[in-house]
Design a binder for these strands. Structure first.
Lengths: 203, 203
DNA sequence: ATACAATGTGACTATAGATTCATATGAATG
DNA sequence: CATTCATATGAATCTATAGTCACATTGTAT
């Protein structure tokens, strides 16, 4: 956690530091990211940085917390409160939608997340509990859908939860690296959900 | 490309270097990987390394070429030769199967590939053409399946090709990080294909 | 106004790691 | 044997960066 001095800072300076950090971590892996680049861009002295943070990792963890917070803002809060009122595929659609909106509006945070995904050690240190929560959430969703008779009883819930997570990544990836797939977001989400629902086999 | 001196080396020394490099690159990202660790493990002098390779990237590219070559060995060659004789889902099953067998037997190469996936710049420099080939291959497969009437005509081929690639990653990931999902490989592949074919909706 | 605390500063230190280079070794050639 | 060529070596160089520290400035309470 950043030191108190950091939270005592005038808002604009604190924000400059956060902005600079997001820029740097979005472009480079944790190890490659340079404290110097951050202090330069934020126009603070190197020494000041260490008044605010224990070290580079301390700042990084803080950025991840910010990203997680922002991400949560994007999921439909009404939906989360009144899950019973939504069907499984409606819920899934809302979730994917929020993921896409988030990626569109915070591409740098998505980039940081992607990076983190590939650094196992850091990932578990920084993100472990969040990740588990996310899997558990999908599993609960699937179990509920199954109980309500919306889902094929033959599917394996654990496996399906991983696949739904993967689909979410795939979706974010399409939107994030724009131009790769050339459809508007809604159309992508709908086509994707169609495949999740029905598979690709002719019937 | 490594220098001639490298290819002139006695087999056992050359292999020691490759082994050490695979070990190091499997554990650390390209940037984090240390030439020193490789020369130490291979028991060659630091200077010798630069007799064999232009630089660290030169070796890395070579390792990727080796991995790609090994990966290709694992796909059923009979299948590749006689595609017409296989149905779409049979072909897909064979492909996934080869992916899983490869991951089981060469976990370090898989780890290197995973790492690479997350370094856009390096990825395109080292792997770009391979990746495009892989997408194109799935697209062709889907087009053929569509033409043969095995697939739902409503699905978007480009999107589906990305999803099939994602499924492949998911599969490798399950097998690779063993214990995460607790089913034997065949069962995972079959359950996964079931979802690809039919979706998860109750019918 | 004075003193004490909190914050700011950037030159300095420490470390790690890639790459180079002068020199050594040894095998092949004439 | 002397010379040349290919290869081996590790100390030295170079570069990049994280993190520290002694001192400077600012803010605040009495």
């Amino acid at each position: 956690m950043p030191k108190d001095t950091f939270f005592n800072l005038p808002d604009d300076k604190r924000e400059r530091i956060i902005e600079a950090a997001i820029d740097e971590f979005a472009q480079r892996s944790f190890h490659d990211a340079r404290v110097t680049a951050i202090t330069n861009q934020a126009e603070i002295a190197k020494g000041s940085f260490y008044q605010y943070f224990e070290d580079k990792k301390d700042l990084f963890k803080h950025i991840i917390e910010i990203a997680v917070g922002k991400k949560i803002e994007y999921v439909n809060q009404d939906m989360m409160q009144n899950m019973q009122d939504y069907g499984f595929f409606q819920l899934l659609r809302e979730l994917y939608l929020s993921g896409v909106r988030f990626a569109k509006e915070h591409p740098r945070l998505v980039a940081i997340g992607m990076q983190l995904l590939s650094n196992q050690e850091l990932y578990y240190e920084v993100f472990g509990t969040h990740a588990e929560k996310s899997y558990a959430f999908y599993e609960d969703l699937l179990r509920k859908g199954m109980a309500d008779g919306e889902l094929d009883p033959a599917i394996d819930i654990v496996l399906a939860s991983r696949l739904l997570t993967m689909f979410n990544y795939a979706l974010v990836d399409f939107v994030y690296e724009d131009g790769k797939v050339d459809l508007d977001d809604m159309a992508i989400i709908d086509k994707m959900l169609y495949i999740v629902e029905n598979g690709i086999k002719r019937r």
